[in-house]
């Protein structure tokens, strides 16, 4: 048996987004009104509280000796509770990065109009075990001059604007 054009022809009916939005076919609209309050738990709770203080904190696994960031209550490799808290630096190196012309909902940024592309990166934090990275944004750098291994440092919001969030760090910028 081959699957042929004829067999699939009537399995689905092609529409355009306009056909739906302008009512060529009937449709129903719905916007879910669901909101969440996610418990931070002890590990992320302390992580966020320290971000408010302008510091980055990690946690150590006493079995594999990794210094884990973001901190977590158990080591996902050794499956044992983690040990002591360890402050790490707010500097690091770029592991990999992106020059993004789109926002989270795939909407295009007005690059021609002068909007700077987003430059998210995985940043390996100094003081954590090598390879332990976090996702954050880069700025104060020409997007096209970012390179692997570039040294960067956190740019913090002023203390009065910090709320205990990953965005208390505005972005990371290059340091030479």
């Amino acid at each position: 048996m081959e699957i042929t054009d004829k067999m699939v022809a009537k399995t689905a009916t092609k529409l355009s987004a306009e056909d739906i939005q302008k009512g060529k076919v009937l449709s129903v609209k719905w916007t879910p009104n669901l909101k969440y309050a996610w418990d931070n738990g002890p590990a992320l709770g302390r992580y966020l509280a320290e971000l408010k203080n302008g510091r980055i904190i990690a946690k150590k696994c006493n079995k594999c000796h990794r210094i884990l960031i973001p901190p977590r209550m158990f080591c996902e490799l050794c499956w044992v509770p983690t040990g002591e808290w360890v402050y790490v630096k707010d500097t690091g190196i770029v592991n990999t990065w992106v020059i993004s012309y789109v926002d989270w909902k795939a909407g295009r940024l007005d690059i021609k109009g002068g909007v700077r592309p987003f430059t998210p990166a995985v940043i390996e934090i100094d003081g954590a075990t090598k390879g332990m990275g976090i996702l954050h944004l880069l700025n104060e750098v020409d997007p096209w001059k970012i390179y692997r291994g570039m040294r960067v440092k956190a740019v913090w919001k002023p203390p009065e604007e910090r709320i205990g969030a990953i965005t208390d760090i505005k972005y990371f910028k290059p340091v030479e």
Partner: peptide, 24 residues
């Protein structure tokens, strides 16, 4: 490690910011 005080318990708020159009 466990929370000792209720005030230590923190949370992060968010939502799933999607809407839908279902063809019938």
């Amino acid at each position: 490690e466990r929370f000792q005080k209720v005030t230590d318990v923190t949370y992060w708020e968010g939502q799933i910011p999607m809407s839908y159009i279902y063809t019938v």
